[in-house]
Amino acid sequence: MPDDILSVEGLCAWFGEHQALKSIDLNVASHSVTALIGPSGCGKSTFVRCLNRLHEEVPGASASGKVLLQGKNIYDANVDPVLIRRKVGMVFQKPNPFPALSVFDNVVAGLKLAGIRRKSVLKEVAEKSLRQAALWEEVKDKLDKAGTSLSGGQQQRLCIARALAVEPPILLMDEPTSALDPISTAKIEELVVQLKKDITIIMVTHNMQQAARISDRTAFFLLGELIEFGDTSSLFTVPKEKKTEQYITGKFG
């Protein structure tokens, strides 16, 4: 498909001897939200961490296969993972703002790394990203407070703003709401739907209702294999695979 921003072919991943992903094929359309569901330990987190080559930073971990980002394989030998991570942003399960940096410095950390130092540009981007992350109104008066002084939900949105500031075409979210309260969760879900018009989102969740609420397509992982992948509405109503049906009806996991 021409408008697939990302396509994965035969992706395998290992932790030492243990194979965590078994030959995954999956395409992601531009400006969509893809949800990855499955019981814990099924490889869904490992999968997203392969998409920005963060998986290999774990000691002993390795991966093989193809991940085509805008047509270019990010696992080619001459590709620098640092540049890939600039294009594929990531938000983690636990909010992880840099504790030594202020709210403002957290948001522009990526820009500063890229060498953009002009105050006016930084300010503009910081405000825009914080607005995108629906956090601006709450923090505009405490931009120079420590990033870790915010509440858990605010910290997570700060991390989203930090990832958005470098304008990545793809944003990976690894269970971004599992550590948050329901209100913060709702805010972030709303945000994800909003962001779809600008970027492509791939989101791991263990909450099936969440997947059903916000995603266009859903992938179901089990024991390192991709069991089923399709439109969210059909996957949840008429699953093709028996295992998918068992999982979404709560038979296991």
Binding site: V82, F98, P99, L101, L113, R162
Partner: peptide
């Protein structure tokens, strides 16, 4: 925490920038 390092790497930091931003700064 590991997450601090991954946050920097995911932002496109080089190894040294990761050490500076996530390890030395804090």
């Amino acid at each position: 925490p590991r997450g601090q390092r991954e946050a920097a790497l995911a932002l496109g930091a080089t190894r040294w920038e990761m050490m500076k931003l996530s390890v030395l700064e804090s």
